[in-house]
């Protein structure tokens, strides 16, 4: 384990990474944001879930540096008197958790189906890829909306609110697996004919073992690239759903629900409720996209 890690440190990838200012910069920003959101309970001045600490008299306060601002609330407060800094940090945390879990779920499903599809071929392959083709011709957001809509019909209002976070993860995962399946499948097709796979087959290993132990490690590179870019995408989809009022209930402050609340106060000039969560969302997805772009170029030397 240790040896493979030091091996990794000496790889071209790490060398290229340290030489690219964009890659290092975006990775640092993304990691800082992740750290800040995970440490939200420690860092934030207030717990936005703790209704006792909220004072309605302190609602819609502007940021501290504006006139009428309160130094207690650096970035101002929202309509319930929640501190925007704390709410944004907690919101980031929920958005990130949803993003990571839904990416993990679609990765799991997509990679499995891609492996099976590419390795077995034939009717299984045709079936999986047909479904993928049909789904790919629709935008991810639409798929996620429809999955969410189906659960809204299935569950009653109260149950849906309680299960909202899982429904969203499922909806985003359902909209994202195709990318993984197609990437893995095309890699598997080119790996399948190679000698090491033939060798594994000759010594009598079963298909499952060959797929998981031998082919899978060799196709994970592109999967990581897809997953990195997908995280930004997943967080944007979550925010969009919540913004449309179809994601998390307002009691759970994700970035999208915060922006939605803020939107209602935009016309009275209370811009900070929307802008700070919006900026957090933008900076995070920008840094992840920059890093993902770099990773794609670095791992795929054919493309320039």
């Amino acid at each position: 384990m240790f040896k493979s890690f030091s091996h990794f440190l000496q790889s071209d990838l790490v060398y290229n990474f340290t030489r690219s200012r964009v890659a290092v910069g975006s990775a640092v920003v993304a990691l800082l944001i992740i750290a800040a959101s995970m440490l939200a309970p420690v860092l934030s001045p207030q717990n936005p879930f703790d209704l006792m600490s909220l004072d309605i008299m302190e609602s819609n306060l502007p940021p501290a540096w504006e006139s009428g601002g309160d130094p207690k609330f650096l970035l101002g407060t929202d309509d319930q008197g929640r501190d925007m800094l704390s709410a944004t940090l907690y919101g980031l945390r929920i958005s990130l958790i949803i993003g990571v879990l839904s990416v993990a779920l679609s990765l799991l499903v997509g990679v499995t189906l891609g492996l099976v599809s590419g390795y077995l071929g034939g009717i299984v392959d045709t079936l999986i890829m047909r479904v993928a083709d049909v789904q790919l011709s629709f935008p991810a957001i639409l798929i996620a909306l429809i999955v969410d809509g189906a659960f809204r019909i299935l569950l009653d209002k109260e149950m849906h609110d309680r299960a909202a976070i899982y429904v969203i993860i499922l909806a985003i995962a359902a909209s994202g697996w195709v990318q993984y399946a197609r990437t893995v499948r095309s890699c598997v097709l080119s790996e399948k004919g190679k000698e090491y796979v033939e060798a594994a087959r000759i010594i009598g290993l079963g298909p499952v073992l060959i797929m998981v132990r031998h082919i899978l490690p060799n196709v994970m590179g592109p999967v990581f690239v897809v997953a990195t870019l997908h995280i930004a995408m997943a967080i944007i989809i979550e925010a969009t759903l919540s913004f449309l009022g179809l994601g998390l209930p307002p009691t759970t402050p994700s970035l999208g629900t915060l922006i939605r609340t803020g939107n209602e106060y935009l016309f009275s000039g209370d811009w900070w409720i929307t802008i700070f969560p919006g900026a957090a969302l933008m900076i995070f997805s920008l840094s992840v996209n920059l890093f993902g772009d770099w990773l794609r170029d670095a791992m795929n030397p054919k493309l320039l």
Binding site: A232, I236, A239, T240, F243, L244, I259, N263, L266, T274, G278, L281, M282, S285, L286, N289, L290, D293
Partner: peptide, 13 residues
């Protein structure tokens, strides 16, 4: 790239 990272609804807002 900034455009890609900005969700549509945020551009609108």
């Amino acid at each position: 790239l900034v455009g890609v990272s900005l969700p549509t609804f945020l551009i609108g807002i």
